[in-house]
Amino acid sequence: MTDDSNHPRPPRDSGPNLYDQVAEETASVVIRRYSTSFGLASRLLAPPVRRHVENIYALVRVADEVVDGGAADAGLDPLAAARVLNDFERDTEAALDCGYSTNLVIHAFARTARATGFGRELTQPFFESMRMDLVQTEHDAESFDAYVYGSAEVVGLMCLATFLQGSTVSPAELARLEHGARKLGAAFQKVNFLRDLSADFETLGRSYFPGVSVESFSEADKTRLLEDIDSDLRDSAAVVPLLPASSRRAVALAQGLFTELAVRLRATPADRLVTSRVRVPNPVKLRIAAGALAGRTPRTTLSSRTTTPKAAS
Rank of each mutant, 00 (worst) to 15 (best):
D3R: 14
D3T: 13
N6Q: 13
P10C: 04
D13S: 10
D13H: 05
G15L: 15
N17C: 13
Q21P: 00
A23T: 11
E25Q: 14
E25D: 13
T26V: 12
S28W: 07
S28H: 10
V29H: 05
V30K: 00
V30R: 00
I31E: 00
R32Q: 10
R32H: 12
L40Q: 06
L40G: 08
A41L: 07
A41K: 03
R43I: 13
P47I: 11
H52T: 15
N55W: 06
N55K: 08
N55G: 15
L59C: 09
V62K: 05
E65C: 07
V67Q: 14
D68P: 06
G69P: 00
A72M: 13
A74W: 04
G75Y: 10
L76G: 09
L76I: 07
P78Q: 14
A80N: 11
V84G: 08
N86G: 15
F88E: 08
A94G: 10
A94C: 11
A95G: 11
L96E: 09
I106R: 15
H107N: 12
R111D: 14
T112R: 07
A115V: 02
T116P: 01
F118N: 07
R120W: 00
E121P: 04
Q124D: 11
P125G: 03
R131Q: 12
D133V: 01
Q136D: 08
E138Q: 15
E138T: 15
Y147R: 03
Y149S: 03
A152R: 01
A152E: 02
A152L: 04
E153K: 05
V154D: 04
V155E: 01
V155M: 00
G156P: 07
T162Y: 04
L164E: 14
T168L: 15
V169C: 09
P171L: 11
E173S: 13
R176H: 12
A181D: 05
K183I: 02
G185I: 03
G185S: 04
A186E: 03
L197N: 04
L197T: 04
A199T: 14
F201M: 06
T203K: 15
R206W: 13
S207D: 04
Y208I: 03
V212I: 08
S213D: 09
V214Y: 01
E215R: 10
E215A: 11
S218N: 09
E219M: 04
R224D: 13
L226Y: 01
L226M: 02
E227V: 02
D228I: 08
D230W: 06
S231Q: 10
S236N: 12
S236H: 07
L243W: 09
A245K: 11
S246I: 12
R248P: 09
V251C: 04
V251N: 02
A252V: 04
L253Y: 01
E260L: 01
L261E: 03
L261F: 05
R264F: 02
R266M: 01
D271K: 08
D271V: 07
R272E: 06
P281I: 00
V284Y: 02
A289W: 01
A290V: 15
A290F: 09
P298C: 09
T300V: 06
T300Y: 02
L302D: 03
S304R: 06
P309T: 00
A311D: 02
